[in-house]
Design a protein around this nucleic acid. Structure first.
Lengths: 341, 341
DNA sequence: TGGCTGTAATAAAACGATTTACATGCCCGA
DNA sequence: TCGGGCATGTAAATCGTTTTATTACAGCCA
């Protein structure tokens, strides 16, 4: 049987209301009473019952965080940042890892509704049908990474199209002539935007449509392996690859090397994300760096603001940076220049 | 104003108690009433208020998960597994990432006490002083990875000593003669156990103490880089390295290569964990595979059992497997044999 | 003294579910 | 016909807080 406020009040010789006010400070209480309540609480080891507080005030001090795959350091890092910011405001994070399945995403949202004050959503099925009801219930939602077409929703995204255009231009400069795209699943807006941007970029540089080939692949190491295998088998002339994700790109590099290709001499490869491993593998991976830390910070701040002071949702697009490394650098090596877009 | 059970009951034309019983099934209700309540609930979009339910029943349907670093795929993978298992039982996961700091670990435990039914703790400061109070409050706690000396606590650990002994033996077989250990922070029991086991293993193989050198390093890629730099600078004769963590080992490999060493010819390297990247880098990393999936599953199951049916805590030690790869294979390559201990 | 103001304290009413204890109606055997 | 199950329903108590009235009391001024 846990210690309740009633016990504390009894021990301090005051009423329950006074004890409550002394602890929360929501109404003036004489110094002597405050002192007695505080020491009584300490002596008894009083722990406030959060459920009761929540029932009365409606504040849960929790945010829901829905992520496709914490194992991927891109999302893992964002989870870490968000958790830190939430903790600083006294919020805790209810995490759900969907493993890319729409069922788990929908189930998670349903489960979170009545347990959190707001939701930070890294969706992999941004259709809106699962999110609309949350907004109607008045629950603040901020989408991150995958864009939603839904108003009343906060959004924090990367400028995927601009990034992919820069990748195209860079691959042309690096000497690519026949291009392959490792596209992500068609449901993902990031995949669509990156593929579209890349095609646009190639067109701007005068590359013919017949010199552009694409394959769909999961956003994972294995997906990249399989995708590039299909791509190179069907179009052996490909000499430059753009992958929608670093994980795909790295899987692709390993598969290509297993197939006997030399990177970058036989095949240029460019990824997207700049996860920590991209600079560690050999050859190091040229990629588009997303400002994961900045985006996570902005998303968490926006959500907390919507929850605590009723802030309005907004949509913010972050620029990405091209980080040129060995996987697109033929001939002599050198440092890793970073180009901001 | 949200829909309450009262509204549902009114719409269904029954009492609140009947509505409750119809929804929870805790008492028999006539089929017709059940039907009316269910459809009323559906029509109104009723969402049960979890706080009220928790207040009354004392069940929070939540577990706390305290982890040092989700960015590391070893822990990230376990988080993913645990989340899946919890979700299957209708529990949600309150995650805290401590970033290895004792303050955040302590703060997290304090914050979780009144919000979860049980805690799964991957500690980095396994002193017990922060955990004892939880146990006294009757909150089930299962420690994972880092061992605690505390009874009433569940435990799921790897057999670190046996693994490290095997590493020693393997490095001797592979041709090592002067050994370096990348130890982890002294507060970590895993670091202590692995270093001790490694030393034991070397002694068993007749290696002299004077041929064993150690440096302390953080459990991270950067920690590994710095640690190996110090180690090789002070003892250039070292030709075999055992790192307490794959992250350290990989950082170490990169740093050693930057220093002009060839792996494995100049330097044998063995890690511990078998994170996914260990088989992807070049040279691929010989390591001790922890059964992360199995441990996470066991830990989650044990905790849920303690919560739901009052199961007794137990301590379980998982064996680790030596996975020999290129970083300790001089001469010709080949497949990757796995030795179970 | 009487009335007014302001400060502290308290009793009691929420919050929304679950659950206990009691009421009702019906069937059946004695 | 009466009383004892049996199946359903319901009113009301309860969980532990916060918050809203309300009360008590002192100080102050006319």
């Amino acid at each position: 049987m846990p210690v309740t406020l009633k016990d504390v009040a009894a021990r301090a010789g005051v009423s329950i209301s006074t004890a409550s006010n002394a602890l929360t400070g929501s109404r003036a209480v004489s110094a002597v009473s405050v002192e007695r309540v505080l020491s009584a609480a300490a002596e008894l080891g009083y722990q406030k019952n959060e459920a009761a507080r929540t029932l009365r005030t409606g504040l849960r001090n929790a945010i829901g965080l829905v992520v496709p795959d914490v194992t991927n350091p891109f999302w893992g890092g964002m989870v870490s940042t968000i958790d830190r910011i939430a903790a600083e405001s006294g919020f805790h994070v209810a995490l759900t890892n969907t493993e890319f399945t729409p069922q788990r995403e929908t189930a998670a949202l349903a489960r979170l509704v009545s347990r959190v004050d707001g939701i930070l959503l890294f969706s992999t099925h941004p259709t809106g049908s699962a999110v609309r009801p949350l907004l109607d219930l008045g629950i603040p939602v901020v989408a991150c990474d995958e864009a939603f077409e839904l108003d009343g929703l906060g959004g924090v995204y990367s400028d995927n199209e601009a990034g992919a255009r820069a990748a195209a231009s860079h691959l042309v400069d690096a000497g690519g002539s026949v291009f392959g795209i490792l596209e992500g699943p068609a449901t993902l807006t990031t995949a669509q935007q990156r593929a579209r941007g890349f095609r646009q970029g190639l067109q701007e540089r005068g590359v013919l449509t017949t010199d552009i080939h694409a394959a769909t692949a999961e956003y994972s190491f294995e997906g990249g392996r399989q995708g590039i295998r299909r791509l190179l088998a069907e179009n052996p002339a490909i000499d430059a690859i753009f992958a929608c994700t670093d994980n795909q790109a790295i899987g692709g590099i390993f598969e290509a090397m297993d197939m006997g290709r030399t990177i970058p001499d036989d095949l240029l490869v460019c990824g997207f994300d700049d996860i920590s491993w991209s600079s560690r593998i050999a050859p190091s991976l040229t990629t588009l760096r997303q400002d994961a830390e900045g985006m996570a910070t902005r998303a968490a701040d926006m959500l907390l603001e919507m929850i605590t002071v009723g802030g309005e949702p907004s949509v913010q697009v972050f620029p990405v940076e091209l980080v040129a490394r060995d996987s697109t650098r033929r001939g002599a090596g050198g440092e890793s220049p970073v180009t901001s877009l």
